[in-house]
Design a protein around this nucleic acid. Structure first.
Lengths: 235, 235
DNA sequence: GAATATAACATTTTCGATAATATTTTGATT
DNA sequence: AATCAAAATATTATCGAAAATGTTATATTC
């Protein structure tokens, strides 16, 4: 797959940045694991300068931490941060949803309908054992939620939402299979209901459904994360 | 000059970062002005690598923009962004204030009282013609608002509020003298009232006062900014 | 004269060597 | 064995030259 050079619009720094970003999100590194420059240099095939730049950027995004003269580490995960992130996400996204319902035009409706459709299709063809299909499902999931709030008219809210999504996605990754195959839950029905309420311009109902959707997700993630911590401590 | 290295715990990259950050906030560079590496290298007294790192970080914070192979520029300012930032700020900070009023302990009250006191003192000794005293006043102002929401219990909200403050402070800088010397406005009374309501644990009232405080500030800033744009276009 | 190619220049981006700092190992002393 | 200092090693942080890329000026063609 070495063809990637063709698209020369990407600097080496960009490349290193997106590669590391993906790997961290995928959970390829353990939380708090030190990220040694020499190692990464080999893995990414770039020199020190672009590497440091990529890591600096990731640090600003909250995916890694950096300490002067002691280099970079993968950012930690914690139950508190998970709770905080999901609560804040709910508070901010519900407002963006209200504004979108207020201001959304035909294009907005189109984006919701089409992203929901794409999510459904990917859901049919995804299998809990295939990581690639689950990653694709996660992307479609994100697209749908982005579409929902895409008419808020506030660049700032969009940026905040983007960053909060980033803060939550690492918690979801390890338990993606479990989440989407949870028998007590039909995600497509939940998403469909949110979409319906939004398109019907019923803001209170849409907000209620979105809040419930995130609350349930948060509960399951917190459950999964506590289990993982428990296993790590005992086993 | 570069002898001042001594025992500084600050790496060169740190130094370049905070220097540039201050200068951009102070308005030493025009919005959208290209930031040439060679120039900055001289101004900051550091090599390319730490410089690029500092600029990358500032770009992530939203103070500069970066385009591949075309370097960095000072981030633009616009009326739309000003409005958006102040509205979003109000939405997020009022929630953090509610939570702080709900959860705040004695220490929280202490931080409010003492930061309000410090703000008052600096206000007495500040003069509209002295940029240094105005910068100090701005810092005390920020400290007070940070103290108000410092018991929200949400690291995420704090981070968001921090970034939104950063997004608004550049608009305030050029008209700081006008703002604080506006005869139709007594900022100390506004701040005192907010503080009183918060300490009395009257959340609805405190939120109302804080919202009004930001609305008025936003109006005056939008006014000042339109004037500036008008003058720039005509004169 | 307009459009296109070519060369000269400016700027960003990358690399690898070097300096600065942290961490580990070693060995002498108690 | 435990403690400490000093040397050895590992790692990060910085610099400046070199490569890659973009921009402007000049020449050439139609």
């Amino acid at each position: 797959m070495g063809k990637a050079l063709s698209k020369s619009t990407k600097s080496r720094g960009e490349q290193a940045y997106s590669l590391l970003r993906h790997e961290i999100i995928r959970g390829a590194f353990a939380p708090e694991q030190p990220l040694r420059l020499a190692q990464l240099q080999e893995r990414c095939g770039v020199g020190f300068s672009p590497l440091r730049e990529a890591l600096t950027r990731l640090a600003a995004e909250g995916l890694v931490t950096s300490e002067a003269m002691r280099g970079f580490r993968v950012a930690p995960l914690s139950l508190d941060d998970l709770r905080d992130t999901m609560e804040t996400r709910t508070y901010v996204e519900t407002e963006a949803l209200r504004r979108s319902i207020e201001r959304g035009d035909d294009d907005w409706e189109g984006r919701i309908v089409s992203s929901l459709h794409a999510l459904g299709r990917q859901n049919e063809r995804s299998h809990p054992d295939d990581p690639d299909s689950l990653a694709a499902l996660e992307d479609r999931h994100r697209d749908f939620h982005v579409a929902l709030i895409s008419a808020s008219g506030s660049r700032r809210l969009e940026q905040i939402i983007d960053n909060l999504y980033l803060g939550s996605v690492r918690y979801r990754m390890p338990s993606l299979g479990n989440l989407s195959s949870n028998p007590a839950r039909d995600l497509m029905i939940e998403h469909g209901a949110i979409s319906d309420a939004a398109l019907a311009r019923d803001a209170p109902h849409a907000v209620e459904l979105l809040t419930a959707h995130y609350s349930l997700t948060a509960e399951l993630l917190i459950q999964a994360h506590s289990d993982r911590l428990g296993r790590a401590a005992n086993g």
